[in-house]
Amino acid sequence: MAETQGEAMTCAQATELAAGFVLGALEPSEMASVRAHLSTCREAHPEFEELGAVVPVLARTVPPATPSPDLGDRILAAARAEQTKSDEAGARAALQPMPVPVPTPAPWLIGQRRPWAGFLEVLRRPAWLATAVAAVLVMAVLGAWNLQLQGQVSGLTAYRDGVAAVLDAAKASGARVAVLSPAAGSGPTGLAAVDPAGRLVIAMRDLTPTTGAQVYEAWLIGADNKPVPAGSFAVGPSGVGTLAGSLRGAEAGVVVALTLEPGPGATTPTLPIIVQGRAGSSAGVIPGPASGL
């Protein structure tokens, strides 16, 4: 890895790297520094536009070639399969919320906002049973925790659906589940499931909303430490993001990680890693027929 240039790049330094940048030919740390500069600097950078506009033209020099006649049909079939899968997961989630362990307090507890009111009543009426007070206290704490972590009900529904899809994928024989969280401190959290067929399903909450062409890109990092892009998704104001991606050859001991990329199609992760987690056996995490190989 090349030495980091730091975030505080000057316009002149960024401009010097413009040609390499628009061609994607800089080292990863340089790419990241230029991106950071362009996304924060208010000055115009005409050189990037001038040079960047030429790059797509290069694609027009390629010799024409004809793909298999059925490629278009295969693409449509793959999209339909993916759409059906996510529809089914969504429908199931709507019908039966699944009480399962997640890294942060379960979203369905958000409905327990009332314990606050109950708690206040308890204070006014000290004659209530101590056990009831204790129970209400527990619920109040959980409720407050949830409210703090996740305030938007629509986001919660989306997240719950996403979690249901993850759990669905986790039921597959040999599937593995990863709890996704920041390397340190608090921040976005979520769940991912990787099944042996290469299906990767992710549900995330508390992500910073994406802007413009930005996407969160999921990466699978196998034993060779090479991040392989596994799909991307955008995130709205709710902070919830879900992904149903697929790739071949999901390896044992795989780490799932998310980064924020300026657009779809990233080939290497733009640091920092937002969240990550190691996919382990789903047995013990998810109740159900996930045992056995």
Partner: peptide
């Protein structure tokens, strides 16, 4: 590890030349 550069990922640089390029054949 890590020697491959990151491409600008649909960096969405304004393609001011789109019409120019579109008007050119291979």
């Amino acid at each position: 590890e890590g020697t491959d550069g990151t491409t600008p990922a649909v960096l969405a640089l304004p393609d001011v030349w789109n019409e120019v390029a579109a008007g050119l054949d291979r």
